[in-house]
Design a protein around this nucleic acid. Structure first.
Lengths: 219, 219
DNA sequence: CCTACCGATCGGTAGG
DNA sequence: CCTACCGATCGGTAGG
């Protein structure tokens, strides 16, 4: 039976396990960064190993296949997105402020160059949108999770009485997501320096146009 | 000096030249299709040659390098976009109808599966937005050309008195582009079957909200 | 975690 | 347009 270094490290030696996990985490942090710029196919075992000063096979042992490396990279990127966007947004008050925070932090984490290639999931989405298989399915699943979070935030703003109940939550979520995607595209490809600011203004205008008189002012 | 088959065919034999050009066109039509699904890096000389029943080097002679093949593929995709989106939209009356036709046909050409991977330029945009070099520059140039066309269409609708002069043309163009990008994303990755219809409804709502009482009704 | 491999494929070339 | 190559790199394995 195949045994990766990490898998065998789940045994009795906690110090060795800790080191294995730390190495794996370091590999994946680098992997997300490379994949954000070069794509999940452009992320090769050889270049990843060299950039970490490891041997190819030493790195390979943590994953067992290229596909498993890609899946682990998607999971690592998801965790970073949760830590940098979702969790901080949950500290904002329920309703309109929290919804706006989600959009604002989505844009901010790309703007602040958390990864050298911009947004990992935007790149991965368009790279795998015509493929089949577990990697595409994992990316789509994380993005459905994200759209669900955005949609629930719209619904939450309605429950707080901040947004008109005539608004379709999934529709507004898709609209907000489109502004962020469009701004990412215009910034990264066209080098339009006003695109993120423009997307924020547009999103705020739209949110305010749906706001009730009860809603706190955001932005 | 390097001489490609096509280059040498620019000589005195028109029949040979015609055949060379036809072969090249057939190669590029296939290349755009493959690149729309697998990316411009995933487009390899070997797979492209095999899918056309040619030898690698027979195909290679038309271009001289992978980069030249990629550049020619971008140019071929641009011509298809002009033929399927820009030219038909110019048959619509100036002003609001023509602006709406541009957005509608952009969405339609993806919806109608002109290419197996959806929109070539959307895929190419996100694949190359973190790279440098002539291929990225060519993609960005075509997309700036497209945004210029959209922006001029907004401006034209203002000149016809169909859209309020308080609207920023480049801003509205970016907004419309975002709806199309977002719909492409939701359709191709999330398999959201309502996304294109939703983008059309949203774009129409926004256009009507900026419309003067002079404007013909579109959609 | 390493060295030392494997077959397949990559972009590209020589020579016809 | 072809066959027959080239070195480099791909994902992956054997054995320690």
């Amino acid at each position: 039976m195949r045994q990766s270094f990490t898998a065998s490290a789940t045994g009795r030696n906690p110090r060795r396990q800790a080191r294995g996990v730390r190495t794996r985490d370091a590999i994946l942090r680098k992997a997300v960064d490379i994949a954000s710029a070069r794509g999940l196919e452009g992320l090769t075992v050889g270049t990843l190993a060299k950039s970490l000063g490891m041997s190819k096979s030493g790195l390979f042992g943590h994953f067992g296949s290229k596909e498993e490396l890609q899946l682990a990279t998607v999971d690592a990127a998801r965790q970073i997105f949760i830590d940098l966007v979702i969790k901080p947004a949950l500290t904002a008050p329920k309703g309109m402020p929290r919804l706006w925070r989600l959009v604002d932090l989505w844009i901010a984490h790309v703007e602040n160059h958390v990864f050298s290639g911009g947004c990992f999931f935007t790149a991965a989405s368009f790279e795998f949108d015509s493929r089949r298989g577990p990697v595409r399915d994992r990316i789509a699943s994380v993005m459905r999770e994200w759209m669900g979070t955005l949609t629930r935030a719209v619904h939450g703003a309605q429950k707080e009485g901040h947004i008109s109940t005539t608004v379709d939550p999934a529709g507004l979520a898709q609209e907000l997501q489109s502004y962020a995607l469009g701004a990412h595209w215009a910034t990264q490809l066209l080098e339009d320096r006003a695109a993120y600011a423009g997307a924020r203004v547009l999103a705020l205008q739209r949110l305010r146009s749906f706001a009730t008189s009860n809603s706190p002012r955001v932005g």
